[in-house]
Amino acid sequence: MSVAIVVGASSGIGQSTAVQLARRGTDVILTYSGNEAGALETAAAVEKEGRVAVALRLDVGRTETFPAFRGQVVTALRDTWQRDTFDHLVNNAGFGGMARFEDTTEELFDKFLRVLLRGPYFLTQQLLPLLADGGAIVNVSSNSALSSGLVEAGYSAYATMKGGLNVLTRVLAKELAPRGIRVNAVSPGPTRTRISDASGVVAFEAFPEAIPMLAAKTALGRIGEPDDIGMVIATLLGEEGRWITAQNIEVSGGYDL
């Protein structure tokens, strides 16, 4: 029996990942920031698959809360599973959005930095002593940060942070290899999620007319769904991914191919 921590699992890719892991026999500690109802929905879906779920609140943009969160994880592991380690970590929490380079403020830049790069960096550092040898980490990046990805105006800050996450993935894979811990990233293309921008606007709800345009740019003819990404993450964490590390897998259906 394995236990995974899925960060940002109250909707979208994180929610799908938690359920896909449960279908493969993994119990889940899932985190949420403001969407408690979504987190409870995810927990119920995990339990419907016959697995155990614990939902914990976490704001990835506030690193000062990480020691207390680690204490909650220790308690959950001890009380729920009678163990002191977990097996998998999925760094998924984040927010989207765009601003042209000349309009990007230091405040917005710093928010992207806190949530998309500094948060995953120091949360992983905080949880690393609890991660079992032979475990695995998956960081959720973006194809906007890939050299093969479509360069779109307005993503300079967002893509910069995701690019940093990609570098972190490779370096951590090297550093953690002596413990048998694998570290990979997935880079989704346009995916139908409820991820919001810095102002709280949910892109696909606010701009449904963008969906046909994005689908037309995708080789497989549609935009991604959360399960398209969640299945890949679960596979990377599982036995099928045991010989894969330091990789960044684009999961975009051939976006801009």
Rank of each mutant, 00 (worst) to 15 (best):
L150T: 12
A136E: 07
P208Y: 07
A159Q: 08
G154S: 09
G154C: 03
S142W: 00
K217H: 14
E209I: 09
G163I: 05
R182V: 02
R182S: 10
I137R: 10
A177R: 09
M161V: 08
G200Y: 00
F204V: 09
L150G: 04
L168G: 03
T218G: 10
G149V: 09
V151G: 11
S156D: 12
E152P: 02
K162A: 01
L176M: 09
V201F: 05
A185K: 06
V186R: 10
I195K: 03
T191D: 08
V201I: 11
P178A: 00
R179V: 07
L176A: 03
V202K: 15
S196K: 15
S199A: 15
L150M: 14
G180E: 00
P188D: 06
G189A: 02
G154N: 08
R170P: 00
V140E: 11
E209S: 14
I195C: 05
S148G: 09
R192W: 08
G189F: 07
A203T: 13
F207Y: 15
L165N: 01
V171G: 07
V167K: 14
F204Q: 13
E175S: 07
P178E: 04
V167D: 11
G180D: 03
T193M: 01
E175Q: 11
F204P: 00
P212V: 05
G180P: 13
A153P: 01
V202R: 15
S187N: 14
G189N: 02
S187H: 12
S147Y: 14
P178L: 02
Y158E: 02
K217Y: 14
S187Q: 13
P208E: 05
P178T: 01
G149N: 09
G135N: 01
K174F: 13
L176P: 09
T193K: 05
A173N: 01
A216F: 03
A145N: 09
G200R: 04
L150A: 15
P208A: 02
S187D: 09
K217G: 04
E209N: 12
L150H: 12
E209W: 09
N143Q: 15
A206K: 13
G163L: 06
S148H: 01
L146I: 05
S187A: 15
V140L: 11
A216V: 06
A173R: 07
A177D: 04
S142R: 00
A185H: 08
I137C: 11
E175H: 00
